[in-house]
Design a protein around this nucleic acid. Sequence first.
DNA 1: TGTTAGCACTCTATTCAAGAGAGTGCTAAC
DNA 2: GTTAGCACTCTCTTGAATAGAGTGCTAACA
Lengths: 342, 342
Amino acid sequence: MLDERKQKILQAIVDDYITSAEPVGSRSISRKPGMGLSPATIRNEMADLESLGYLEQPHTSAGRVPSPQGYRFYVDCLMRPQKISDREVALITNWYETKVKNIEQVFQETVKMVSRMTRNVSLMVAPAPAKSLFKYVQFLPLDERRAIVIVVTDSGFVDNKVIDIPEGTSFHDLQEIANGINNHLAGLSFDQIKTSLLKEAKQDIMANPVLFEAALSVLRQALVVEGGERVYLGGTTQLLNQPEFREVEKIKGLLSMLEEEQLLCDILHMQDGDGVVVTIGQENKYSGIQDCSMVQATYRVEGQVIGTMAVLGPTRMEYGKIITVLEFMHRHLGDILKKYKL
Amino acid sequence: MLDERKQKILQAIVDDYITSAEPVGSRSISRKPGMGLSPATIRNEMADLESLGYLEQPHTSAGRVPSPQGYRFYVDCLMRPQKISDREVALITNWYETKVKNIEQVFQETVKMVSRMTRNVSLMVAPAPAKSLFKYVQFLPLDERRAIVIVVTDSGFVDNKVIDIPEGTSFHDLQEIANGINNHLAGLSFDQIKTSLLKEAKQDIMANPVLFEAALSVLRQALVVEGGERVYLGGTTQLLNQPEFREVEKIKGLLSMLEEEQLLCDILHMQDGDGVVVTIGQENKYSGIQDCSMVQATYRVEGQVIGTMAVLGPTRMEYGKIITVLEFMHRHLGDILKKYKL
DNA sequence: TGTTAGCACTCTATTCAAGAGAGTGCTAAC
DNA sequence: GTTAGCACTCTCTTGAATAGAGTGCTAACA
């Protein structure tokens, strides 16, 4: 275990490096107020910290840089989580109130907000609409040949699509079809609906068998809800501000990774459990982000873990700030989602 | 006017530069099949073309680079617009059929597709929903205290929001309110609705005056359709692939510009008329993109120009390809939009 | 015994000159 | 009118020299 002075120095080094992105020399630590030690003493301690594995030296005559182990210790023991100010809380609340009108927008705006607050890329997996339960469909007239179909899931997702009205079907017929569908399929998952659709439909749904063909056609158009979980991504341009991504090549690599929804899903699913988790550099299982760190948090609705959100950035990230923000979202996002019914 | 040989050489130079991004020397032009001229001859012609203003030399011993005037001439006279292959047409058609279900998605997917086909940033202004005419609202039950309100405009935009049901209002009441609203406000623009709302409401809308307060509250929540035109943006990461944006600083500048919706709107509105227009470098009125070129096209529904789409990239862009793609979209986007009712 | 000043040492980043390479313009021959 | 040849120009790369930052070690000090 590190003695108190070593901890203090390590903390100063990490703090300094996080803001400056430059290897930290003994002089600059010595100069910090409250340190009260000469550069030479600091140097001795730094040499110790290096041989203990907490620091690294890019080359002999450079300052020190935190090692992954150094960051780990910093995150676990040294870092002081920043408080979220009342002003920030007010800002967040206001943001949701003015910009968010439905569930979809909760996700869209949350990633935007988080990326802005943390100055890093932020991502979020939303539960798959297809996994939730079908609640009802409703047809709205558009013109003679087409209608809008609104599909609502029990979790509050709303999907709208324009469909062709089958030949010879009146709008009144459509409403009857909707009733049939709603009566018989409400409460089923979309997966169930897909498989059992044809059989069920034939036997039960339609009081009026003349409408059967029309109903089938409509069902097929209406009930295909976009399959998988959706990943929301925000603040990718923040990457450009990080000195570690000064070379376009590195950004390209990360960005093209961030475009692969499935991959992101997988990465975010690697963490289970509940709460805020930090993975630093090589701790990340996916090799494409092993020079990055990720702070992840689950969010819950009524105790149930529903999904994950995360902030991705260079290992030299503002852990304190980011953890605080995600901790906050972890606790409060559920309430916000519930407002729009999830 | 340039004689035929000069034109041929200029064309070869621009073509070469567009693909290589390197100043073009006399040798490489001379080597091109069908050229049949020695480097020395080419050099003479190049010198002429330079003094005529069609070419520039980064420095004495470099090859030539097209000047803005050179690009202009290339675009106006030399460039052969590429045909869109049947395969591409099929791809586009299929893209819309599988990925697009409503108007919103037409815009989202169009910018994606165009940016992919042109390998450049693509943008598009959609007509402001608020400018279109209110068609109807419909309430859908969510739970006891909340409902989903669906607002449909005559142009086919569908907006859904979760609203609080006013205290003491039954779902049946809501439907009555919807009827009142629909009967009296259908066909009005949202601007009109906003201003005339209170007066009108009081006098006419509500058959049942008891519901008046509730109706007002609901109206306020429901009928605020996001104000301005929306800008859709696609393929910003394409910037990273362009050699002219190898330095992060340049990308940052452009990207931060691309984040300002209003600015983009203004830029796209500077072009009027109908059809495909190319603005090269300094021809752009906004100084932030004066080292870029932009190809813009309007799109129409039933003859009416409805909005603009554009491709933005370095002046060294594949004009032939891009113009062809936008020409195609210019002609066909209207049909696609009409399918979802605009 | 812990701390510190001093100094030699190491490594990077910058600067500068030299040389290679690419391309031109001009001249003279075809 | 076209082209081969050649001197010339400018950039980019390479390598050496130098300044700068920071270290590690030693010896002195409290």
